[in-house]
């Protein structure tokens, strides 16, 4: 039950990242996503992995609060396609994780698939650096879950690497593109 709730929180976090344009919304999304992933990682790979993900998500959220568009900007005008994407991705991942795939670990499968998919989609649809780097950081955290899929006792290294990557990316301030 706890894992199912964590998977829902992770989906919610990834959806907030998809639906937000402001720094607070993005920070909230990455924090929620990391919290959900950390709870699942605790069950899959132990406390070191879970702690790494939680810390990485916290650093990423803090970094995002420092740069980007002011405010929340959750579901701004014209974001209906993004909302449909979040719901459709959630339903599709739920069907594949719980209906098509077999064996234990449905919340892990669901979280890995939906967060990876939504983060990748956010980068495809985004233009602003804070949005792109937030989604990339969340993608890194979810790729660690992919490493834990199907293994009995995954090592904590992918989770540590994901945390370092997600925490670092959020603090990058790219130089503006030069005019041609």
């Amino acid at each position: 039950m706890v894992e199912a709730a964590a998977a829902f929180v992770a989906w919610l976090g990834a959806s907030v990242v998809v639906l937000s344009d402001g720094r607070r919304g993005l920070a909230l999304g990455v924090a929620l996503g990391a919290a959900g992933i950390a709870v699942i990682a605790l069950d899959v790979a132990g406390p070191i992995a879970a702690g790494s993900i939680a810390l990485g998500g916290l650093v990423a959220a803090a970094g995002r609060l420092g740069s980007g568009r002011e405010g929340w900007h959750i579901m701004p005008a014209g974001s209906t396609p993004r909302l449909v994407l979040c719901i459709a991705a959630g339903l599709l991942a739920l069907w594949v994780a719980a209906g098509v795939a077999t064996g234990p670990g449905a919340p892990l499968r669901f979280t890995a698939m939906v967060v990876i998919g939504l983060s990748g989609a956010r980068v495809l649809g985004g233009e602003d650096a804070p949005v792109l780097f937030t989604a990339t950081g969340l993608l890194a955290l979810s790729v660690a879950l992919a490493a834990g899929t199907g293994l009995n006792a995954p090592e904590p290294w992918p989770f540590l690497a994901a945390a370092i990557l997600a925490g670092s990316i959020a603090w990058i301030s790219p130089r503006p593109v030069r005019a041609a």
């Binding site: 795939a101 890995a112 698939m113 983060s119 980068v123 993608l139 992919a146 899929t149 199907g150």
Partner: peptide, 22 residues
């Protein structure tokens, strides 16, 4: 950024599909 991120997304999803039972 899109190229590498889409690549990692697809590769990670591929790894998930390969590892699950079904």
């Amino acid at each position: 950024l899109r190229g590498p991120v889409v690549a990692v997304t697809l590769l990670a999803l591929g790894a998930v599909f390969a590892r699950v039972q079904g």
